[in-house]
Design a protein around this nucleic acid. Structure first.
Length: 830
DNA sequence: GCGGATCAC
DNA sequence: TATGGTGATCCGC
């Protein structure tokens, strides 16, 4: 803390002291007091910053309201009339589509109330309370009422018990009979937390697992005897005496469900019964805690319920929407209906249609199947963090965590988003989309790092003062994309056209992370340029000279390990492939000529990027200081400094190494960007003077790397040799497929990555189909295995709010992996 | 696609 | 309660 700041603190301390009556200025106590008070002030400041931000946000909402009101004033009576007619027409349609035939139940665990209870009765804390997810109650209880029930988060679920109810009408009494201890049940049905496990006469209940939540082993250990409380004959007799029979109505069924849940979990649940999900959800709120409420399947009953309901109670209507509507004089659902015409003119289509549904009490009558996960993220809040070093470190850590999570679910995404919240609680997100999906720490970090760098640079020389950082990956391939990708790669490889290239990628040195922002247009980031370049090329069709046959041959012979070991999948199949698909952009290529495809892929992989990077590097060069190495190190540089740092040989772009027939003057360049040695990596982000290996646009080259594993195992040393003779330490390898820097200087590792990028799909496919035929089953099944609490759901389809999740099909990817070894592949190709 | 905002749990 | 973490969607560019 510098002196200026300290004096500032002191003066404010005085004010604070006076206010709180602690203005004791006695010498000797100052030190202690100051420390204490600084702390308090910190807290206070924190609070006020938060508050300030809340005010700010509130004002933004106010501005929205103002705009809206202005808009409203401009509405002519004619417009209003027209709107009224249109909306009423819609209302009629909606009314006709009203479906009251379903019985939807919403179950909501009273977790909050359990916590309160625990607080009030600390002795309860001694007793184990079941903690688990609704999806566990899936399996145990809820599925018996609706096999397709939909868990929402950890403590909610929707059930469609329509069919179940019909069936139950004919059930004999003993099928609806449950037992419990008298002393555990009060008159109104409330049980105390000591209630035993549910006991039901039916054999399934008696034989039920002692463990309610398989994912909570501690609970099981703590309660080894919970399966049965029939310790003695006496107990058994007594319990048999205390039975309860539930009726056949929806209300009775839901009572039964809640009873069973409580017996199992020792926690109470509330429930709502209604003809659709929206209403059911609101119903469960009605008699909370430990209660239930039902709206009969009757239009009038629905409308009565809706009538005076504050709009804020409606799922999907939050603080802001409430305020917006309030400004229009709308507090209840019936008012929402009355104002339907102006609303249709003031809100977006989706919004006002949703409002219409709400005001009519309409909602979804079917429980949507779990959708696919759309994103995955991780974020962390902390005390102020303002050094770039810490920030990069944290960023990497987040990437690591995220990568682990992604890989658990076998997900790869194309968009990486960095989220930052500064100490003033202002949130900012920065995203970048890469051409090929990413999932590893290195891949994600490569992108996130740049995004972070951009932000750091943008405020330099001031530090970024962060209180939160998060990383998200989205843009996952959907099932169709995956198939498409696999097919195209399969085709691609079948033609022996796989080229695993090593790119020399000019880029800013890592040292730049901590130095000044670029002098040239600091606002145009690395990514901005990249985007611009990408856009540009998307508009300008790529033009390239024809790839001559020699070049094709070079590429072909240089790489595909499969081709060598497995001639059967060589180019002989190429004739079968009528249309070619680029494995990078997935676009189908009109021409079926390999040359054209190759050209296209080259462009996808390198063209735009390199152009752009050249520009970036050049500007970076302008600001390099004497301590820096030039960011432009011509290939084959003999700079001693660079040489010293070389440990891996990558000979790229030297004319003698480039096939004379290879494309000249093309935009392809393969760059190696500086990376750090393993040891250096520890502090990689702080003080690295890294070097660049840069290929001029005119000195193009193409390097095909042998598949690493293949090389290691076979005789293709020769090819590897050429790279390893001129080691370049501190060079970052950039995967030409995913465009991301690889945190390794080990070519084998790098190659493996590229291999994975390009081949994983096909290898998997091949091993699944041939080596591990059984795999198909596993994969198929694994799709259905969900991850706890992460199942995606849409509670109110009309609002479109979806809660996530997917089951972590750990099984899928993991099991496949076991068969995915190179040994298997080799075996296969033999 | 990006970025900000809103919403839910 | 307030805050934090995760995820989804919408809207305006």
């Amino acid at each position: 803390m510098d002196s200026t700041k300290e004096s500032g603190d002191v003066s404010s301390d005085n004010g604070f002291l006076l206010r709180v009556g602690l203005n004791d200025n006695k010498a000797g106590m100052q030190g202690l007091d100051k420390e204490k008070i600084n702390k308090i002030i910190m807290e206070a400041t924190k609070g006020s910053r938060f508050y300030e931000n809340e005010l700010k946000k509130d004002q933004q909402v106010n501005q929205r309201i103002e705009k809206m009101m202005q808009l409203k004033d401009k509405i002519t009576s004619q417009q209003l009339l027209k709107a009224q007619l249109q909306v009423d027409k819609l209302v009629m349609e909606l009314e006709q589509s009203r479906d009251l035939s379903c019985t939807i139940v919403h179950i909501d665990m009273d977790a909050f109330y359990a916590a309160v209870e625990m607080r009030d009765n600390p002795e309860l804390k001694e007793k184990p309370i079941a903690v688990g997810s609704m999806s566990m109650l899936v399996r145990k209880i809820l599925a018996q009422y609706d096999p397709n029930f939909m868990p929402v988060g950890l403590d909610e679920a929707y059930l469609n018990i329509t069919e179940y109810l019909e069936e139950r009408q004919n059930w004999p009494e003993d099928k609806r009979k449950y037992f419990y201890k008298t002393d555990n049940v009060t008159e109104n049905g409330k049980q105390d937390l000591n209630a035993p496990d549910e006991l039901k006469l039916n054999e399934d209940a008696l034989s039920s697992s002692p463990i309610l939540f398989e994912d909570n082993t501690s609970l099981a250990e703590e309660q080894p005897t919970t399966t049965t409380h029939l310790h003695t004959e006496e107990q058994r007799d007594q319990q048999l005496l205390n039975s309860i029979v539930f009726g056949t109505s929806a209300q009775e069924v839901v009572k039964e469900i809640r009873f069973r849940i409580e017996q199992k979990t020792r926690l109470t649940a509330s429930a709502g019964i209604a003809p659709n999900t929206m209403l059911a959800k609101m119903c469960s709120d009605q008699n909370k805690p430990n209660g239930q409420f039902r709206i009969p399947p009757d239009r009038q009953a629905v409308m009565d319920f809706i009538k005076d309901l504050p709009i804020r109670k409606v799922p999907g209507i939050g603080k802001v929407t409430e305020k917006l509507l309030k400004a229009l004089g709308i507090l209840t659902c019936s008012e929402l209906y009355q104002q339907r015409a102006p609303i249709s003119l003031l809100f977006s289509e989706t919004s006002w249609r949703n409002f219409m549904d709400i005001s009519l009490g309409l909602g979804s009558t079917h429980l949507e199947k779990d959708g696919e996960r759309k994103s995955m993220s991780t974020e962390r809040t902390f005390g102020e963090m303002n050094t770039a070093e810490d920030q990069y470190d944290l960023c990497q850590e987040l990437c690591k965590d995220l990568a682990q999570d992604l890989q658990k679910e076998g997900l790869k995404g194309k968009t990486v988003t960095l989220k930052l919240k500064n100490v003033n609680f202002e949130v900012k997100t920065k995203a970048f989309t890469v051409l090929s999906s990413v999932s590893t720490e290195e891949e994600i970090f490569a992108v996130a790092k740049e995004l972070l760098r951009t932000e750091i640079d943008s405020v330099a020389p001031h530090p970024l003062r962060l209180r939160l950082m998060g990383v998200r990956v989205s843009g996952f391939l959907n099932e169709e994309d995956k198939k498409y990708q696999q097919r195209s790669i399969t085709n691609f490889l079948k033609q022996g056209k796989e080229t695993t290239v090593l790119r020399l990628q000019p880029e800013k040195s890592n040292e730049d992370h901590f130095t000044k922002p670029p002098e040239t247009s600091p606002r145009e980031s690395f990514f901005d340029k990249k985007r611009a370049a990408r856009q540009k090329t998307s508009q300008e069709p790529f033009i390239n000279e024809a790839v001559d046959k020699q070049n094709l041959h070079d590429m072909k012979s240089s790489v595909n390990p499969m081709e060598e070991t497995g001639p059967t999948i060589g180019s002989e199949n190429s004739n079968e492939v009528k249309s070619l698909t680029c494995p990078v952009c997935f676009e189908e290529q009109r021409s079926s000529s390999l040359e054209a495809l190759n050209r296209h892929i080259d462009e996808c992989l390198n063209g735009t990027l390199v152009k752009e990077k050249i520009a970036t590097s050049k500007s970076a060069n302008l600001r390099e200081n004497t301590h820096n190495l030039s960011p432009y190190i011509k290939h084959k540089t003999s700079d001693t400094h660079t040489k010293n740092k070389m440990n891996t040989l990558v000979d790229v772009g030297h004319p003698s190494n480039v096939s004379k027939n290879s494309i000249s003057n093309c935009t392809e360049a393969f760059a190696i960007v500086p990376s750090k040695s393993r040891a250096e990596k520890e502090h990689s982000l702080s003080s690295d003077t890294s070097s660049y290996l840069y290929l001029d646009q005119n000195v193009s080259s193409k390097i095909s790397l042998e598949n690493a594993e293949h090389c290691e195992n076979s005789e293709c040393v020769q090819e590897t040799k050429s790279y390893s003779s001129t080691a370049i330490q501190d060079d970052i390898l950039v995967c030409p497929v995913c465009n991301l820097e690889q945190k390794t200087t080990d070519l084998a590792v790098f190659n493996r990555h590229v291999d994975v990028c390009l081949n994983k799909g096909i290898i998997q496919e091949l091993t699944e189909e041939i080596v591990c035929p059984i795999k198909n089953n596993i994969t198929e099944n694994s799709k259905r295995i969900g991850s706890l609490g992460k199942a995606p759901q849409s509670m109110n389809p009309t609002t479109g709010t979806k809660r996530s999740g997917l089951m972590p099909p750990q099984s899928a990817s993991k099991k496949v992996k076991t068969c995915n070894s190179s040994r298997n592949i080799e075996t296969f190709f033999k």
